[in-house]
Amino acid sequence: MWIRRVPAAVFVLAYLVALGVGTYSQILGDARLPAAAGYYVTWDMFPGHRGTSERVLVVGETEEGEHVLLYPSPRQRWRGGLHGDLTRLDFAGAPLTGASAEWLDEEVALSVAAHDEAWPDDPVRHVDVVREFWPSRTNLTEASRSDDLALTGDADAPARSREIVLSVHADEFRSQPGDVAGQGSAE
């Protein structure tokens, strides 16, 4: 019997050490583990929401002055959120920084290429990356509190503000894939 317990005991010990390192990281805020491993042993479920929601849209203008929505494109069919208008990128936290910006950059490049292929006589000339943001239901005063709960679908969509974080010639997305979208300044 004891010989079966040795590997079990080793596993138990290793598992407890992993959980212990996770606890240490969380209490002291000291990320000792690689990010991927740390994700599986830390439980920071409230990453700090800001009270503001946002989404990213990319609009292309063609040589003939037509406008096409380059992002989200039909390649992004998944939608989520209270109003059903957020893409996976919008769920990614800071969508216009780091890896997310590179991801968006390549998606826009694919959309530009797809458009150019479909309409070779009217290619995309200019690209605008738009950050649309809105407060998450402002001023929830007790006076505004209803005795009857509203259905989420009935919730009034708040007024949205927009900021063009990048406005460039479409060739930027044709010639040099990279962190183009991320060059813009987010608020």
Binding site: G51, T52, L57, V59, E61, H67, D128, V130, E132, F133, W134, P135, S136, T138, N139, L140, T141, P158, A159, S161, R162, E163, I164, E187
Partner: peptide, 19 residues
């Protein structure tokens, strides 16, 4: 397109969560 590309100052109410 005009609506999506319309930039404007962020309304002050968007800075306020609650009064």
């Amino acid at each position: 397109a005009e609506e999506l590309l319309s930039e404007g100052p962020v309304p002050a109410v968007a800075r306020v969560h609650r009064v």
